[in-house]
Computed example of a mutant assay.
Amino acid sequence: MTRALIVIDMQRGFDDLDFWGPTTNPGCEANVAALVERWARAQEPIVVVRHDSRSESSPLHPSNPGNALVEAVASAAADLLVTKNVNSAFYGDPDLHAWLGERGIGEIVLCGIQTNMCVETTARMGGNLGYDVTVALDATRTFDLTSDIAGLGAVTRTASELMTTTALDLQAGGFARIATTSELLVD
């Protein structure tokens, strides 16, 4: 069965730590580049997803330079570019689910930014749609989060805690298998 690599939101705007806050996993971009190279060499499908924020103040808004893909992804010979303005790549344009179905692709491997947002949402939807989903956890990264939540007060989680929780939720919940880049490079 053919599998596709889905590279989510690897955009320059995520390097703006004044906007996003503290992050983790500085090896993310190198791991994504290694996966892209491996998929290209094997002539397996590569899907690149770009987040086009509706908020003009976001580094990911199409009018801002941060909307651009990082070099390792921009130079890749992607089979499909999906643009979206929500968390899931399955709600983008063109229709990812239809594209995968037309090609008989039942297995997807996800990487990119943010682990607990767009990567996790796409993994959950992919699992619910019947795909065999793998997340290359060390080819993702995210940012610290803080929010006042009714009944809980101020809640803070570090990027590392969020990555761990996402991995646990996805794998224990049956949505996806968690793997490392090195495991996927030998497949």
Rank of each mutant, 00 (worst) to 15 (best):
D148E: 12
R50M: 09
I46F: 02
L170K: 03
C28L: 11
D93E: 15
A42L: 15
L17F: 12
L96Q: 07
S88E: 07
A77W: 00
T140H: 06
S55T: 11
P65T: 12
T166I: 00
S53V: 11
H61R: 03
Q114C: 06
G13C: 06
R12N: 11
L129T: 04
V186L: 14
V119P: 07
T115W: 00
G151M: 06
R50W: 08
D148R: 11
M125G: 01
V186R: 15
V36G: 02
L35Q: 01
G92N: 09
V155Y: 10
G173C: 05
T83P: 06
K84S: 04
I178G: 09
L145A: 02
D16I: 08
T166P: 00
H97P: 01
Q114Y: 03
H51N: 15
D9A: 07
E102H: 11
A139P: 02
V73P: 05
P94V: 12
E107M: 05
N25R: 13
N67M: 07
V48W: 04
A40G: 06
H61W: 13
D18C: 01
S53T: 13
V109P: 00
E44P: 03
T181N: 02
T115K: 04
T165K: 01
T180L: 12
T2A: 13
S160C: 05
A34R: 10
L81H: 13
G21Q: 12
L80I: 08
Q171I: 00
N87D: 13
N116R: 00
E183R: 12
T23S: 15
T166Y: 01
V86A: 14
L100Q: 06
R141F: 12
C111P: 00
N67T: 15
A78E: 12
A172S: 15
V32R: 03
S88T: 13
A176G: 11
P94S: 10
T166N: 01
A136C: 13
A98W: 05
D187W: 00
G106Y: 05
P45I: 10
R103H: 03
W39L: 01
K84Y: 08
D16P: 05
A123Q: 05
G92C: 08
W99D: 07
P45C: 11
P94L: 14
D148F: 09
G106P: 09
G173L: 07
R54L: 15
I46D: 02
A123T: 09
A68T: 10
T115V: 04
R38Y: 00
A136T: 07
S147F: 00
E161D: 14
M10Q: 08
C28G: 02
G173M: 00
D132C: 05
L137S: 14
E161C: 03
A78W: 03
S53E: 13
V133A: 06
G92Q: 03
L129Q: 11
T181M: 04
S58P: 08
L81F: 07
D144K: 04
S57P: 00
G21M: 09
T140I: 05
T24N: 14
D138K: 09
H51V: 08
L80V: 04
S63M: 15
R141M: 14
V155D: 09
G151Q: 09
Q11W: 10
T140F: 08
I108L: 10
T181W: 08
R3H: 05
T134E: 15
S63H: 14
Q171G: 03
T146E: 14
L96R: 08
W39Q: 00
E56K: 14
L81V: 09
A89T: 10
W39D: 00
A179Y: 10
